[in-house]
Every structure is written in C-alpha cells, then in structure tokens.
Computed example of a mutant assay.
Amino acid sequence: MPMLEFATDPLVLAALMAVAFLAGFIDAIAGGGGLLTLPALLTAGLPPHLVLGTNKLCATFGSATASFTFYRRKLFDPRQWRFALVATAIGAALGAGLTHLIPAQWLNQLLPLVVFACGLYLLFGRVPVTPRAHAAPIANGRQWPQGLMLGFYDGVAGPGTGAFWTVSNMLLYPLDLLRASGVARSMNFISNGMALAVFIVSGQVAWALGIGMGFALMIGAYLGARTAIQGGSKFIRPIFLVVVLVLSLRLAWQHWVGTA
C-alpha cells in the first residue's frame, strides 16, 4: 500500500519533507505553496485522491502556523471576516465532497492541468496596488461569494488558493498586500481544515507522510510569515513573482514536455 511504503522509506520522506518546508515558506509569504507539494506527491506515486487528502493534512499544519503568526501581529481580525470564515468553510466542504465523485483517472489528468493553469495565471496576472487604509470598513456582502468560490476551489484542488485570496482581497477591500496576505493565510487555514475533515471521513489520508510533511510545513510557514511581516509589501512582491515563475516553468517541463 503506497501510504505504508512511503511512511517507511526515509529517503522519500526526507525529500518530501524538504519540499514541504520550502512550500510552507513560500506559501506564508506569497501563496502558491500547493503548486509545489501537489506535484511532489503525484510524482512520488500516490493515488490522486490520497494525494489530495495528504496534501490537505500537511497544508493545514502550515496554514495554521502562518495564520496564527499574522493574528498575533494584529494583521487579521476574525470579527471583520466572520462571514468569509463561514462561507469558506461551507465552500471547502462542498468542494471536497465533489472531489470524491470524480474518477481517479480524471484526477490524474486534471490536477497537473489545474496546477499549470494556476501558475500561468499567477505569472501573468498583476497584483493590484491599493493605498493603506487600515481603519476603513470591510464590506460584508462581498465576503459570501468570495469565500464560497475560493473555499470550493480549495476543497476540489487547492493550488494557488492563498495567492487567489491575496489578489481578490486587494481588489475587493481597502487592504495593502501585507494585510491581504494575513487574511489569505487565515482563510486558507479554514478551507484546508474543512476539506481535511472530509478526506479523513473517506479514509483518503496518508497519516505518517502527511504529519511528517506537516511539521516541515509548520517550520517553513513560521519562518516565511515572520520574514514577510518584517520585510513588508516591498519584500513580498518580488518573492511572489519569482516563485510563480520558477514553479510554472518546472510544472510545464514535468507535465507537458517531460511526458511527451
């Protein structure tokens, strides 16, 4: 069984933990860490449903750490985002439930395409620039459709969700990049946790591998969040673009050129 095999292979586990550390660091700063962990797990040979469940387990570790770090620095106020929190949880549960109805063969073909398309969007999309307006009110009505759609996407697949949250936050609300990233990490934690619960119920989680990668993600996410907070928006912007460029090129080679 793949879960047991990878849990007892120290070389594979060490390699995937190293990938998870890097993904956690990247995700805490700019989002898109799933663009690295999903292909790594697929390359390691796990079935696609098990890949999604295991990825949610390790991603929950990282997003929880990053979210708590931003919260402690007062860069996220749950009271302002209560509608988005509820909507994200509902959307993620629905998305994860739908995933179990998709045949494994379709997921094997779909996931690399989703990751690649996400990389292209992040590569060519522009991060909006908004003025700092910390005291401005946050619109409640926009939080429902935003949370439902992004939560649903994270439940179905997930790569790039943090980056999509960051960009949409800056488009919809008076937030700078740093505070938009804080909201994104918190919403990502909610959708990861809710989707993980669905995968646990269906038995699609490789626990030993997911926990090992989860601890590596926690360390990377903690260092990434602190680095982002200390460096501010001017630091996040170039990291965001460089990460997207590298990951997009890697995925294009692996899933399109490499399999030709």
Rank of each mutant, 00 (worst) to 15 (best):
L107A: 12
A117E: 08
I90E: 03
T88N: 04
A139C: 04
T99H: 06
R82K: 02
A135N: 12
I138P: 00
C118H: 03
A93E: 06
R132Y: 02
W106D: 12
L120N: 03
G141W: 10
A89W: 00
L85I: 10
V129M: 05
P131H: 06
L98H: 11
P137A: 04
L110R: 07
Q105K: 12
T130C: 03
L94W: 01
G119Q: 02
L85R: 12
A84V: 04
W106R: 14
L101F: 13
R132W: 00
H100P: 09
G97T: 14
F116L: 15
L107Q: 10
R82A: 03
A89N: 00
N140L: 12
L123P: 00
G91A: 12
F124G: 02
T99P: 00
G95S: 11
A87M: 04
H100G: 11
Q109N: 14
H134V: 05
V86D: 02
A89I: 14
N140C: 02
G91Q: 11
A93Y: 07
V127W: 01
A104Q: 11
F124W: 12
A104D: 15
V127M: 14
L107D: 06
L123F: 08
Q105F: 11
I90Q: 04
A84H: 02
P103G: 14
H134W: 06
G91S: 05
F116M: 15
P103W: 05
P112S: 15
P103I: 14
I138N: 02
W106H: 12
G119R: 00
L98F: 09
P128C: 10
R132E: 09
A87T: 05
N108T: 15
P128T: 05
P103A: 14
F83V: 08
A84C: 07
Q105R: 15
R126K: 08
C118I: 14
G125I: 00
V86Y: 03
V127Q: 06
G97L: 13
P137G: 05
V86E: 01
